[in-house]
Design a protein around this nucleic acid. Structure first.
Lengths: 209, 209
DNA sequence: ATAATTCTTGATCAAACGGTCAAGGGCAGC
DNA sequence: GCTGCCCTTGACCGTTTGATCAAGAATTAT
């Protein structure tokens, strides 16, 4: 039997470490340049590794990209998952919005990675969008709907409310260049969070009789 | 004197027509694949033109991209420009939001073109962002502020309100793949517009004493 | 009509890029 | 310390891609 492209069978510490280094470097490069704009050489350079060595761990450029997306997809849903049907609606929504704003601030690169992927038709995560994401949003829309039915929240289309929350919170990560240019300075995360909470939540309070 | 790269001196009908064809094709390709992902061959094919002929009108790929951005940048500001200080605040904002929603629906490709450019650091339109855009937003923020001071609008940070309007309205163009996947169908523009107006405006009404 | 200019393209080039190969270095288990 | 597998890399390959060139076709001006 010829020596055809031996791949590691077990998972060593070196593998774990190097894969992590590669994914870290890849997030930098892919989020800055997109899938097509990024080059394997750039990622290898940033991971301080030769290109063939990088391709020893991920055979194809696409494999790095997919691994990177999968590596962060479930984290992305976590805040929404935590929306508690038993909690106070405005408190729960405020917590969700705050969590999303903090994610945008803490990890803008991941946000831009997703934004770029979706912007270009989401070829790699179509199943995620139509599966787990759709499922979760349907579930949480139900929760919001029940709050409205119970008179604890002003009537609003739950789906579009969730879209609005996503749009506004991720805007600060994805379009930070524009935000900073318009403000003429680095945007202040605390001030942005406060403003966003007001804008999105004030209209949702039920009027007291 | 050698025959160095003769370029047309006058503007003929053929030039106007072909440049238009090229920009139209380029919008398709750039908005779908980004600057780096788009190829000159793709644009030439879509414009039904040989590659050298396309490069006769635009010497470099980047020139097409820049021309395309400039060609649509001023249109982009128009709805905001029309925000009338003398009008009723809620009516004016509703008109602005509706106009932006209609732009997202009518021309999602242009929206994605800008989104992609900004997402990748806006290397080509930095001056536009820090110049005309910043200037206009400052001016209109002043208008909103004066409405608030006059007690005609609930207090809100004008800059972040404008960001929120941009974010939400453009979301339906830029992330339409995700919106459709989550809804499980093509999103209905009328329903989206109604929902967005409610979400963004309800919290801005001043409470009647 | 004819000359001048604009328009068009097949062929080609050089650089960039994703990916392969063969060979050597290094580490674990015996 | 020897054996076998894992790890690493310089050199290389085929393709893609942005851009050029030279030469001919079409259009315009006189």
């Amino acid at each position: 039997m010829p020596h055809t492209k031996a791949k590691p069978v077990v998972n060593t510490r070196i593998q774990a470490r190097n894969k992590e280094l590669i994914l870290e470097a890849a997030l930098d490069v892919f989020s800055a340049s997109g899938f097509r704009g990024a080059t394997v050489d750039q990622i290898a350079a940033k991971a301080e590794m030769s290109k063939p060595n990088l391709l020893y761990y991920f055979r194809r450029k696409e494999d790095i990209y997919v691994a990177l997306l999968e590596h962060t997809l479930s984290d992305w849903l976590e805040p929404l998952r935590e929306l508690d049907p038993a909690g106070d609606p405005l408190t729960e929504l405020a917590r969700y919005i705050s969590a999303k704003m903090q994610m945008s601030e803490a990890n803008p690169k991941a946000s831009r990675l997703f934004a770029n992927e979706i912007l270009h038709g989401a070829p790699m995560i179509e199943k995620f969008l139509k599966g787990p994401l759709r499922q979760l949003v349907a579930e949480k829309s139900q929760v919001i709907q029940s709050w409205i039915a119970a008179g604890k929240l002003a009537p609003v289309d739950p789906y579009h409310l969730i879209f609005a929350i996503w749009a506004v919170t991720q805007h600060y990560a994805d379009f930070s260049v524009q935000v900073d240019a318009v403000l003429g300075r680095r945007e202040d995360p605390k001030a942005a969070q406060k403003a966003v909470l007001e804008i999105l939540l004030r209209g949702l309070q039920v009027k007291q009789p």
